[in-house]
Design a protein around this nucleic acid. Structure first.
Length: 137
DNA sequence: CCCTGATTCGC
DNA sequence: GCGAATCAGG
């Protein structure tokens, strides 16, 4: 596959819609890797959203602006889920704040480690609480 | 190990 | 121009 106009547009849209390169790659499908996406994005001049590597290092810690509001976390909706994402739901379907855990899931599992623990609790030894059969004599 | 984007470099 | 390999960080 080559970069047709359509694909390029899709790339642009997804890119500045905040999708990660790997997610875009999946949606473009057909053997497109995140490297391809990043490479193309780079070449197109679409660039540089906060990259972990280039992250700031001002080194002057003289700015104690700690009382900032917590950044509003994006809620992981059904549409955001990919495999390898924890599918543990929070809230009730239909509610505005219904969302999924979304953390990296345990390999082969639908949930992250902690939610696996939640989901797959071994049943505690259930003592049979019915009255034992009473011998006739 | 999961993930992120950036860069390099042979094709 | 392309993107796999690599790098660099969370």
């Amino acid at each position: 596959m080559s970069w047709t106009d359509e694909r390029i547009e899709l790339l642009k849209n997804l890119w500045d819609s905040g999708q990660s390169a790997s997610q875009i790659a999946k949606e473009l499908g057909e053997g497109v890797t995140r490297n391809a996406v990043i490479g193309k994005a780079h070449r197109l001049g679409l660039k540089s959203r906060p990259s972990p590597v280039k992250a700031d290092k001002p080194e002057a810690p003289a700015a104690p602006k700690r009382v900032e509001k917590k950044e509003a976390k994006k809620l992981v909706t059904l549409l955001d889920l990919t495999d390898r994402m924890c599918k543990w739901p929070h809230g009730h379907p239909g509610d505005e704040d219904f969302h999924f855990c979304g953390k990296p899931s345990e390999p082969g599992m639908p949930y992250c480690a902690s939610h696996c623990a939640e989901a797959y609790q071994a049943q505690p030894p259930r003592r049979d609480r019915r009255q034992p059969p009473r011998p006739i004599l």
